[in-house]
Design a protein around this nucleic acid. Structure first.
Lengths: 117, 117
DNA sequence: ACATTATATAACCGATCAGCTAAGCACTGA
DNA sequence: TCAGTGCTTAGCTGATCGGTTATATAATGT
């Protein structure tokens, strides 16, 4: 139906608190896998896989620097996420206005038995 | 760590394409469970549970109307989602500026080869 | 009261997920 | 060339997820 693998991956990636914490850390700037793993109670391989998920979702990018793989935030996924949420927000505003009109309408003020689409 | 159950639930809810399709349908306005289930190949109980997830995440609200439970978009979760993504976007811009400054800095310029070939 | 309609809940199943440990690269430096 | 460091990959496990069917609840219409 709605085949949007990027949105799927991005939202799924963001659903995990550890991954969100990693992103928050990256707000400060680039960091290596080891640096990212350090504050967490989980193993380094676990962090490595979280990073793979984030990269697959287009939320981070990685370079190669000797044996290190520094990570930084990536813009790729963010645009689509914003677009989707913007659509929902706009719909909410529109529907809210619609509700206001309905509540203000004389038809509603008199009686609200039947509901017409 | 970062205990943000609402964000967890909201992002997780949005990770499923069926649930996003349901939200897109709700952009048009209120709809009953049956109406929401109709376009999908999955069973009604499955849709019912998707709605429960969306409600739990604060992405939709439900009323009671006889035997029907009409659903509509809810604003609750959206604010937090926006806030989180806005933070990431801002960080991306900041880091990008930082990169620009680095590339423009004389320290960096001396290290680079001249590209006017 | 009873059948119908609208939805929710329960019990189950296969797939995916997040964690672990152990082992495997790959680059660095002596 | 060999030890060490940084990270990834491979297998295992228990938990959660999304789907199913069958059943329960609840309001409506006759």
């Amino acid at each position: 139906m709605s085949a949007a693998p990027r949105l799927d991956a991005a939202f799924a990636a963001l659903a995990d608190p550890t991954r969100r914490a990693i992103l928050v850390r990256l707000v400060e700037g680039e960091a290596t896998v080891g640096e990212l793993a350090e504050p967490f109670a989980i193993s380094q391989p676990a962090v490595s896989r979280h990073l793979k998920v984030l990269e697959g979702a287009g939320l981070i990018e990685r370079r190669v620097d000797g044996t290190k793989r520094p990570c930084r935030l990536a813009p790729a996924a963010l645009t689509e996420l914003d677009a989707y949420l913007a659509m929902l927000r706009k719909a909410l505003e529109t529907n809210y206005q619609r509700l206001d009109q309905l509540l203000a309408s004389p038809t509603f003020a008199t009686k609200q038995k039947d509901e017409t689409t």
